[in-house]
Nucleic acid binder design. Structure first.
Lengths: 228, 228
DNA sequence: GTTTAGTTCGCACGGTCGTGCTATTTAATC
DNA sequence: GATTAAATAGCACGACCGTGCGAACTAAAC
């Protein structure tokens, strides 16, 4: 199957329209990442892009569709900037580390000017019912499940202590990433991301050698790298 | 000091007005905790309370003041529900644990129907400049500083490993609390808070006997106090 | 019981919102 | 180059926004 415009039945696009469509979504993503999906406004996008309100509206035919497409477009960026680099590492602990680092780097590089688009969306819609809430819920489940899955794989490969609780560790890693995002934005200080980095490194280091109590093996491969 | 209306010069309040004022703020807090401070609307509050728009407006004389007073009123609730019970425990590790538990309990009990009011505000305003952003920044600094201060005290009293980095541990505790809040709201499942509880318990347990990995080289595991 | 001043309402304003409808322009196809 | 359909502009609509103003009401102080 290659052509499946059966239910949506989109009209064919012209090149100039395609370009405008992309420009609108680009501005929408920028705006929504800073001020939230709900303060996305057709009139404001039109003003910002120097085109008419009808010009913007015609591309989506409803505000809801504009929001949906904005979230989808942001999702593609997230996939490109976080998931793809994260998953490109070899399976196991290395992949888990790569994914966390890909996320932190994506926050640090301000891929979205307002920080992680989906962290923002999580807070905006966690308490509101509706399609966005539902999509966020499945997104979160997927993300946390993926991280937990990587932890399980790392355990199976003997890279993490078998006593590790995958979902619990995934929760802790996720928590460090999200707070690093929020605080680095709040204080306009990308170096806050290093706190998250360290929290993740420590959490993984702990899980590599068991919690405590029992005599551990070597005191971790000493890495006297002059960290900044 | 008890009377300091020097600069603001508020008019004296009548009893019925006082009551309406409180009712408006109550509704505003409820609404803002779910949908965000920016979707707070004078017209909507009026509709919800069955009074006229002017009736609401007269109590604040600007939307900005309404928002400020709403945040302040939510702050008082936070103080009553989290800070006061947290600080009532004896100084040291016990107080730190009490504070974390007070927060988690406050999330669990849905003191605000949309979850932690300030976690919501953090995400809403982290990337936006303005007075709310600035107040949130100082709030966050104060909160994290307070937690770190308690950790320092606990270290001084020999209840936590002296190799512990107070700010780093504070970050990790804070991260667990925030994510517990967001996810428990997103999944409409208060039991998610237990994940945060466990993350905090584990983090504190680790800090009671010294970490295993990471770069904190000083072993000094010399306090065999049985952790609970 | 009169006076005073805080409440509350009704009304109006200019602005923005989302969304239709009708032109007009213009890229793509024949 | 004529045809076709997409892209965009212009305009209008009803709704809601924040805010001002004056009138009516009423609790509190005298």
């Amino acid at each position: 199957m290659q052509d499946q415009e059966l239910d949506t039945e989109e009209p064919r696009r012209r090149s100039d329209g395609e370009q405008t469509h992309a420009a609108i979504l680009d501005a929408a993503i920028r705006l929504a990442s800073i001020e939230g999906l709900n303060s996305l406004t057709i009139g404001r996008l039109a003003r910002e892009l120097g085109i008419s309100k009808s010009g913007v509206f015609a591309h989506f035919r409803s505000k809801e569709r504009l929001q949906e497409e904005t979230v989808d477009a942001a999702g593609e960026i997230f996939e490109r900037e976080v998931l793809t680099p994260g998953l490109s590492a070899p399976e196991g602990l290395a992949q888990l580390e790569a994914l966390c680092e890909a996320y932190l780097s994506y926050v640090e590089r301000r891929v979205f000017p307002g920080g992680c688009f989906f962290a923002h969306l999580l807070a905006e819609f966690d308490a509101q019912s509706g399609p966005v809430h539902d999509q966020m819920e499945s997104n979160q489940r997927g993300w946390l499940g993926m991280v937990a899955g990587m932890i399980e794989t790392a355990i199976e490969r003997g890279e993490l202590d078998p006593a590790t609780d995958p979902l619990q560790l995934a929760f802790e890693l996720h928590a460090a990433m999200e707070l690093a995002n929020y605080l680095s934005m709040l204080h306009r200080d990308p170096s806050v991301v290093d706190r998250g980095r360290r929290a993740i490194r420590d959490a993984l280091a702990r899980a590599t050698q068991g919690p405590r109590g029992s005599r551990s093996t070597s005191p971790s491969p000493g890495n006297p790298q002059s960290g900044g």
